[in-house]
Write a protein that binds this DNA or RNA. Structure first.
Length: 730
DNA sequence: CCTCAGCTGTTTTTT
DNA sequence: ACAGCTGAGG
């Protein structure tokens, strides 16, 4: 049957999409149309009536990928995606646990701990047990617990395998931590997965139900699955389920956090049975870039084996720049970016990549001085900001007063004169009575009881309010708003709190419209619990699980700065890979890890394959590192590339930038002055043709040609731009 | 309770 | 270099 869905696919892609009802492994190289195959497969299965939308389970690692998948499916098919099980491992686990909270042994309104919450919970635990935190560092304990959970191991398993006093103690702490979480009604990220795994493992009827339901399971980025995730998938797969796993072993860059590439080989043995399709045609990059990538990765011993090709020509050579210093490297990048931008390559179509976040500072500085708009990815995310976490802690306390973590976070913020002394007594009382801090506070007196009354009154006042209004009330009544209003540095934070209210309003709106269509589609009994769950609880789960999604700041044309890890899955016209020096990339730490160098090489492979047309590789002879000048050798990865595709750039002469360019000397600053002759004032709101609205934070120079440093704030993202004074009052 | 000086450890990161 | 945390002192 000639389906329009399949028309634009190449033969391999089409073969993958139209595979019969059996498990298969798709080895999809970088830029080979991986997501396209996955979503088209899903659409094809549904359109040809082989499965109903509710019989599909599709799993991804990031919310972004899940959203993308749903968007593409809606574009291909006129169906409601609501009710479909498409999401991240954690999102779907949460969904399962909310539906079957009783069977899973969780309180109905359990809260989710993000990494920071988890760490503070661990610190609190260690303190209460009087553990020596020099010997048992909180971070190490966290790492131990998560590592075990991600391998599917509970405290008793860890204890059974403990070979020395240290690991036995660690296992004890793991057990105590889980007990604390259970008491407080909270679950960390790994717990969501492990708990839902155990739920299905132990509860046969439930397992049967889901295995019967899901005829097709599709998994994206399969090379990134860890042991527990793979087992989780296998539990959902019944005898009549076909698994469709898409992945690229060469792009496995998360082994350091438990991803297990061996899962791919194992999957082939257990499920695919030789049903393997390779997608090797690359639609992204020109030939030279692919040649470089192929040659580099071929030097890894542990591979399933794959070679990318393209019908495009060789394209441009890969430019290699040898800089004197990190600053020299930065100014080279600035020159090239500006030259390309003049040739009409959008800034947002260029990426500046580095191995570690610390490297961005020098680059940012150079871009800032040259007034090149840029955006750094991977900073603090919206829901991880302190003011947001404070507000959320109040909300958590409303739904689950047993949550000691939330209690401690806000009991004295804003300050209410409840100090360490008082809290110690309260904790003692709670421990003796075997209750939560909240209960101890309710029965006690003094300032602590006052806090309990405050929370109680907020609970009464917000009971019948719509979500956004309730949050607004919490922010006011808790004193958070006044606190930040009084703080002269608090304007940004206040704005973020307002943004939280907006986010809540948006959340309500979206879930309302989704419910309206959802009701018509899936009157499935087991799912009904999701919609009856209070909106506040769903919003809190959303905030914990999608902390990164609320990232504003897109929309303006800006150069993209990020780590190589963050660049996975993206593509750009031009890519700069900086800091290609031994010790940095490959990172020296990797030398001490098993197969560490191969992972670094895969990382380099990912970096190279982000580029469509132009690729720059640069290294610096000297670099400021940990406050000292370090002299590094060029990365071995440069030697591993075929010479015929490389073009060594001499400094400036062959670069596209104007010869003899010098970064302008810094002009005298008139910091904090408002009475200058530009006609503007610090703190004034201005409009810029390109960047939108912003606030002036500084001036450089004087007169009409003075440079005005403006902070263009996109909902709290760190985004600065230096603009010339072609501004108008907003 | 709050502030500031001194100490420490600095890959990558999603959920 | 620098951020983030701890402990002493106001």
């Amino acid at each position: 049957m000639p389906l329009p869905l399949l028309e634009t696919l190449n033969p391999e892609q089409r073969a993958a999409v139209t595979l019969p009802h059996a498990s298969a492994l798709i080895l999809a190289g970088a830029g080979s149309g991986k997501t396209r195959v996955l979503t088209t497969r899903m659409a094809w299965l549904i359109q040809t009536g082989q499965v109903s939308p509710l019989g599909v389970l599709a799993v991804t690692f990031t919310n972004k990928a899940a959203k993308e998948m749903l968007t593409r499916i809606s574009a291909m098919l006129p169906i409601n995606t609501r009710g479909m099980w498409v999401g991240t491992f954690h999102g779907l686990s949460n969904r399962l646990l909310r539906t079957h909270w009783r069977e899973a042994g969780l309180p109905q309104s359990f809260q989710i701990l993000d990494s920071a919450d988890q760490l503070s919970a661990i610190k609190r635990l260690l303190k209460s047990l009087n553990v020596d935190t020099e010997r048992y560092e909180p971070k190490k304990v966290q790492w131990f617990i998560n590592g075990n959970k991600e391998a599917g191991r509970r405290a008793r398993d860890a204890d059974a395998d403990a070979y020395d006093e240290y690991s036995m103690r660690m296992a004890e702490l793991y057990e105590a931590y889980d007990a604390q979480c259970q008491r407080e009604g909270v679950a960390d990220f790994a717990e969501l997965l492990l708990r839902s795994y155990e739920l299905l493992y132990r509860n046969e009827p439930l397992r049967q139900h889901y295995q019967d339901r899901f005829r097709h399971i599709l998994i994206d980025e399969f090379q990134d699955t860890n042991t527990l995730q793979y087992r989780w998938l296998k539990l959902f797969a019944g005898p009549h389920t076909a698994l469709f796993a898409v992945g690229d072993d060469d792009q496995s860059i998360y082994a350091f956090r438990g991803a297990n590439t061996a899962n791919m080989a194992e999957f082939e043995r257990e499920f695919a049975h030789g049903n393997v399709i390779k997608l090797e045609q690359n639609y992204r990059s020109h030939g030279n870039i692919l040649t470089a990538a192929n040659t580099l990765i071929s030097q890894n011993a542990h591979r399933l084996g794959k070679n990318l090709w393209t019908v495009e020509g060789d394209g441009e050579p890969i430019r290699v720049f040898n800089a004197y210093s990190d600053q020299d490297e930065a100014s080279f990048v600035v020159d090239e970016v500006r030259a390309l931008n003049r040739e009409d390559v959008a800034l947002s179509d260029m990426a500046l990549l580095y191995r570690s976040n610390a490297q961005s500072r020098v680059l940012e500085h150079a871009l800032f001085s040259a007034s090149v708009p840029y955006r750094v990815y991977g900073g603090l995310r919206f829901f991880e900001r302190q003011e947001i976490k404070h507000a959320l802690a109040y909300l958590r306390l409303l739904t689950n007063p047993e949550d000691d973590g939330a209690f401690l976070r806000v009991v004295n913020f804003p300050a209410r004169g409840i100090g360490a002394r008082t809290l110690e007594q309260l904790a003692d009382g709670a421990a003796r009575a075997g209750t939560s801090l909240w209960q101890a506070a309710c029965t006690g007196g003094g300032k602590v009881a006052g806090f309990a009354k405050l929370i109680e009154s907020i609970r009464q006042a917000t009971r019948d309010l719509p979500l956004a209004e309730a949050i607004d009330h919490v922010i006011e009544a808790s004193g958070l708003a006044d606190y930040y209003r009084a703080d002269k540095e608090g304007a940004d934070r206040l704005e973020n709190l307002n943004e939280l209210i907006n986010a809540a309003a948006l959340f309500s709106e979206e879930s309302a419209s989704a419910d309206a269509v959802g009701a018509a589609v899936a009157p499935e009994a087991s799912v009904s619990a999701e919609t009856t769950q209070p909106e506040l609880e769903r919003f809190l789960a959303h905030a914990a699980l999608e902390a990164g999604e609320h990232q504003a700041g897109a929309g303006h044309d800006a150069l993209q700065l990020m780590t190589v890890h963050a660049a996975k899955g993206l593509e750009f016209h031009a890519v700069f890979i900086t800091g290609l020096e031994e010790g940095l990339f490959p990172h020296e730490q990797s030398a001490h890890e098993e197969n560490g160098l191969e992972e670094e090489r895969r990382l380099m492979y990912v970096a190279i394959t982000r580029a469509r047309r132009r690729l720059y590789l640069s290294h610096a002879q000297s670099r400021m590192l940990h406050g000292q000048v370090r002299y590094g050798l060029p990365s071995r990865f440069l030697d591993e590339l075929p010479e015929q595709v490389l073009l060594p750039l001499n400094r400036r002469s062959e670069s596209a930038a104007s010869p003899g360019y010098r970064a302008p000397a810094p002009m005298p600053r008139s910091q904090g002055q408002s009475g200058n002759d530009t006609g503007y004032k610090v703190g004034q709101s201005v409009a810029h043709a390109k960047f939108g609205t912003g606030i002036i934070i500084d001036f450089e120079g004087r007169g009409p040609d003075a440079r005005v440093q403006v902070k263009f704030r996109d909902a709290g993202t760190k985004w600065l731009a230096l603009a010339y004074a072609r501004l108008s009052p907003a």
